[in-house]
Design a protein around this nucleic acid. Structure first.
Lengths: 256, 256
DNA sequence: CGACACCTTGAAGAGGTTCAAGAAATGTGG
DNA sequence: CCACATTTCTTGAACCTCTTCAAGGTGTCG
């Protein structure tokens, strides 16, 4: 079984859609994408079905809208966006996904993917054929429960996005976006005050329902107010409390 | 087993949260909430776990945010809204749900409901304890697959809402909203050109990220343009093609 | 070094909100 | 069954936020 050399930088062009193998038991993301408390036998069974990894080069797709759905993907490393395209060509980014996230769940019901999942940096994903997942879940209750949890959480988190898009002003959206990213990075052991954005201002805007100029202006405003420090795509939070305070609407404090 | 008299109008005040029993095999919504092609034995097993119905009076809740999650609900008849409330008191309606829809899925991952589900008219819902669903799904692959499909479809349809909130102008949102309702009613055997709104303009606005005045104005504009006919909460579509055309952005046709 | 993609900032403009007032529908109690 | 209160809806006018258009700057990669 090939062991990935995590730290090494490839000297050749990044291979696209190359399939390699890597043990689930070695995966640092186990607690994110697998049910806890599995027996060794169960783990082995799951591993046999899903330990096929796919490299995805920056800019290329894990799957495209319209392709027949046949597998879920757990992101092992890297960063993805999922984008919806309308008949008249408008694009909406429906999510940003990082290590441990599972993408493709929307395809189960439709039979095909409705999204494009595009890597925003060279990434590694774990391909999990859905037919096999179903089989194993039928025998391993913990996997079934885990799958339900993952789908349910995605539904719940999308409610949060609807709140963001439906109720928040531009400033609040950007603040909430940054805080959400930081929180997810924190949960993965990274800094909770500093991050490297993997997406353009335009992509942030698409996700937040704003234009790229608006996003840029708000970054500048936050920097001017000394809430954050922005240098290109590197963002450092200087005043976490103040940033969090911006998520609540400014002119509408609950009054006695 | 009590048989509901569908057509009869209760002469006593509508009983709140009353639990009655009604056979799944009698339910007109079977094809909506249950997997197809079940054996009689499987159907009986499912029925034993989920054939407990709850009446919910207009204005009261099927569940509240914060309550411990223990069951999913399939709506048998009536109409619900699900609403999210923020710390600072803002409300966002995250969905409208009618007969055949399943609500509460977001609770699986969180362990508690994150939404309020409020009946917009006197309604009947089928309570399905989640622990039992899990058990049965473990033994009946068709049920498991069906549950996955339901959750997946909800994820996919929420992507559509994100597109609506993130990318569409007010006019498009209202047109898309009406068309979506009509399509769902059509799938349930009702008219696909005429409907009785069960929610206020404010609730429509909350769902669409608009103010109630904006919704009202757009209804008036559509009526003035003879796309629809509005009389209070009754809406009849006069020109379906033109209404559908409003969903695409008006000033941005793909040009050669 | 030069081309290209990405970002910032300004000024003008549009779409939606806010505020306000009145009309219509709905519900309540006598 | 009618009068009254309440909720919901409509419409107008002023305002504000975000967008659009535009230009220049910065960073990156071949």
């Amino acid at each position: 079984m090939l062991r990935l050399q995590e730290g090494s930088r490839p000297t050749v062009p990044f291979p696209v859609n190359n399939t390699i193998r890597l043990a689930c038991s070695d995966c640092s993301l186990r607690e994110h994408c697998q049910p806890p408390d599995l027996s060794a036998a169960d783990l082995a069974r799951i591993e046999a079905t899903i330990s096929s990894s796919r490299r995805v080069a920056r800019g290329s797709a894990l799957f495209h809208a319209g392709e027949t759905f046949d597998a879920l993907y757990a992101i092992k490393s890297g960063f993805f966006k999922t984008t919806l395209t309308t008949a008249d060509g408008r694009q909406q980014i429906t999510g940003f996904h990082m290590g441990g996230d599972v993408v493709g769940l929307h395809g189960i019901g439709a039979g095909h993917y409705i999204n494009d999942a595009i890597a925003l940096e060279d990434s590694l994903a774990c391909r999990m054929p859905y037919a096999r997942i179903q089989e194993v879940a039928q025998q391993v209750p913990a996997l079934q429960a885990h799958l339900h949890r993952i789908m349910s959480r995605q539904i719940a988190s999308q409610h949060g996005v609807m709140l963001l898009l439906g109720n928040m002003r531009a400033e609040e959206r950007v603040a909430a976006f940054l805080l959400n990213l930081l929180q997810r990075l924190d949960a993965r052991g990274y800094s909770n005050t500093e991050l490297q954005l993997r997406m353009t201002r335009e992509e942030i805007g698409s996700y937040l329902g704003l234009k790229l100029e608006t996003v840029s202006r708000i970054f500048s405003r936050f920097a001017a107010d000394e809430l954050i420090e922005v240098s290109n795509r590197h963002v450092r939070v200087l005043d976490m409390d103040a940033l969090q305070a911006r998520v609540h609407l400014p002119g509408c404090e609950p009054q006695a």
